[in-house]
Each structure stands twice: as C-alpha cells, then as structure tokens.
Amino acid sequence: MLKIENLHAKVEGNDILKGLNIEVKPGEVHAIMGPNGAGKSTLASVVAGNENYEVTDGKISLDGEDLEDLSPDERAHKGIFLSFQYPVEIPGVTVTNFIKTAINAKRKSQGLEDMPAAEMLKKIREKAALLEIDKTFLSRSLNEGFSGGEKKRNEIFQMAMLEPKLAILDETDSGLDIDALRIVANGVNKLKSKDNAVVVITHYQRLLDYIVPDFVHVLADGKIVKSGGKELALELEAKGYDWLK
C-alpha cells in the first residue's frame, strides 16, 4: 500500500531523512520507534505532503501511485491520515463543523454531494461514543484550550470519522493516561481491517500492548537501522537505542 524508497528529505537546509525505506501492506500495523530528533515526525510530515519539507531524493507511493505532485489535501483524499504529535489550534471553528467540512471536502473530491445532515449527525454520535467524547466537547473550538490528552483523543475521533486507508499516528500516546490510552487504542483497533494499515510512531512500548504491531522499525539518524517483530519493541524498552548505533 505505502512504499517508501530511498527517501531523502530536508528542512530549512538540514538533511533529516537520509535514505529511508519502508513498505506497508494492507492489513498491517507497523511501529516506528527511535530517539528524539531521529526524524520520525519529519517522515510523517513528508508522507502527508507538508510543503515545509523538501524531498531531495527517493520516492513515496500509495497503491502504486507516486505522491510527489499531490498536495496535502489530495493525499488526504487518497486516504492518508496523520494524527499530529502536536495538533494545531483552530480558534473559531468547532470540532463538529471542522469534521463536517473535512468529510464533505473529501466527498466533493469524489464527485459526491454533501453527506446528508442526519447521516452526518448519526456518524458523529457513533464515533464520539466510541471515543467517549461528550457533546459539549464537540461544540468547542478545535483544539483551543484542549489538554494534551483531549487533543490526541480528538485526533483519533477525526480518524474514526474519516476512515482512512493509511493512518499514521505520531506519538498519539503522549499525554494520555492509561484509561484514555485504552479508549484511544480501542478506537484505532475498531477501525482496523484487512484493507487498511496503521503506522504507529511511539517512544514507548506501552501503546503497542494495545495496538499490536506486525513489524517494529527503529529510525535513527534519518534511516531505518533495524526492523523486527513486536518483540523488538520490548527489547528497545529495556535496552534503549544506544546499542544500535
């Protein structure tokens, strides 16, 4: 589904990704771990099409289609979803209206009419219940004054609404207490199917107890330096990253 070959990327003149390869197939869960500053969020941003990052070499494709010339919204329409490490505040736009706008933008790109209001409402209720989000939360300005945990939960709520083909979760576990972590992980697991895929970026093994990966990769200094099964995460938790250098 997602194929990244020899990816090199720069931000503000600094080389961050230095020849990265990864392939994610439908139905798989991949975990990417690695020290701070390794380039994990950069990778997520580049896949999502953030124009602040310059791809200097290599190729990213989704279902065989090169993403190079696609804008972030076009990539989103193809089914890429990024749960941000630091979700951005959008004052003046409520959670509900934002997600409605996002869903209808995607439908429009597919030549569909707006989702009927009743259907939208039902879906919002259903997904809010799944993530144990209450009504008042939905009418607040997006991310404005949200706690770290609320922001992360809201990201997964949006993911549940948009039902992406490929979800990249960037440090979604940070800021979540154990109960919230369970709720969020449960939300992600409910969305998993043989046709979609999840890439989980995390520092810690804990989230991987709930969202169990098929593969674990270690990203250090802009490259994947080691890959393995889920037991690699436990090893990393115990030993840190230094032994890999």
């Binding site: 999502a48 919204d73 706008t101 996002a102 933008a105």
Partner: peptide
C-alpha cells in the same frame, strides 16, 4: 501549520485559508 493541519484533513488550501480568515 494551521493550514497544513486543515489540508491534511482534506480541506483544500483555498478553503482552509478562507476558514482561517473567517475564524
């Protein structure tokens, strides 16, 4: 960063800009 966030959710740039300006 707000524009990128909105675009990532599928909202085209012109509309994302308009939403931010409206807000």
């Amino acid at each position: 960063s707000a524009l990128f966030y909105m675009q990532q959710r599928g909202i085209p740039k012109v509309e994302a800009e308009a939403l931010l300006m409206f807000a």
